[in-house]
Nucleic acid binder design. Sequence first.
DNA 1: TAGATTGTTAATCGATTAACAATC
DNA 2: TAGATTGTTAATCGATTAACAATC
Lengths: 213, 213
Amino acid sequence: MAKKVPIAVVRRLPRYFRYISELYRQNIMKVSSKELSEKMQVTASQIRQDFNHFGGFGQQGYGYNVPTLNNEMSQILGVNENFSAIIVGIGNLGHAIANNVNFTKRGVRILGLFDSDPEKIGKPCGVHVIADVASLPEFCKKSRPDVAILTLPKNAAKDMFDRLKELGVRGFWNFSNTEIRSEDGVAVENVHIGDSLMLLTYRLREMSDDSEN
Amino acid sequence: MAKKVPIAVVRRLPRYFRYISELYRQNIMKVSSKELSEKMQVTASQIRQDFNHFGGFGQQGYGYNVPTLNNEMSQILGVNENFSAIIVGIGNLGHAIANNVNFTKRGVRILGLFDSDPEKIGKPCGVHVIADVASLPEFCKKSRPDVAILTLPKNAAKDMFDRLKELGVRGFWNFSNTEIRSEDGVAVENVHIGDSLMLLTYRLREMSDDSEN
DNA sequence: TAGATTGTTAATCGATTAACAATC
DNA sequence: TAGATTGTTAATCGATTAACAATC
């Protein structure tokens, strides 16, 4: 794991993990790069190249042992590090994320939900009770969450990011329709769900263009 | 717009659109590839190359006219085609998508929401009333939705896809934690929100590795 | 051992960046 | 006209695929 892994490889890892953990769940013991390549619709060569960035965990003449592969992948992606997280902004989206994303499967534990709306504070959401964002400084000092999930309005997101960074949060999963740039010691993942809808409409338009010509 | 646009370029389009439509909203009339490159943290060269896949809409010595650019981008992405859509599966996620995604901005109009749970059928959700999935054949014949947004459980998604494809739906925005492959005349966008969380934990793990060495 | 499949090097392909002539 | 910035070609860089020796 010495030299830097190319970004193109890194971005494929979650998809590998999905397929491998599914095989593992099904108690399948062995998979070859060829079999996996057919399932995933990528070349076997790419799979072998990709895996080898992290050291060879296959065996010549046999293939890959699924439990080993699953374990290595989990290690690489950090899904058994048991990171802690908070969700800030409990509107429709925050609520859906709190209740829909399988955090456990990805090694993340939700410590608490926060909102600034007095209507919401104190109300339950899933297994949690929504707390006041005003209590965040105290909360962070005590519980030291690793990650903050930002599901608040666009204009409030950057401010909250700055505050939480100050309070020691190191990872941000940002759904606020604005791009927060990762700086020095923090990692930021900006999610723009709408982008994928635009790719769909692009392809739909492309399809009708084709059929008309 | 003759030769095929590289996939790498296509995937950057939604991000361009976000930045350009923001400039447009701010009534800014002019932007150069250099200015845009600084805002977006990409090279000016890449911006010019990318835009030129769709024909030159800049002007030498001046830059790009923002309204023109915005209009071209909208055209390319199909956001003023006025596509119609339905949402199938109104759990937490379906509910959040119905109420959180700015469909209008992307040229998509929601015609209706559908679920199979008798508890939900007839209940309101935003401006809509949840209808029975059993009414889909009739509904599709009459209203011909272009797109189906699949926010139902993993195991039900593929079946629903097959049924809706049969009923003439051509675009699928799939949130069901399973990969549906696009076939012949349909376009599928599979969304795996969790993948982005894993990229975040990957980077967090990487960061702590670095600081420990 | 023979067959299979990895790990890895070399070849190809595509994407990004640099450079600059064209031109507004 | 002089200055600026595009459109586009050429050079570089990185990613993917092919091929095969190593080896289980």
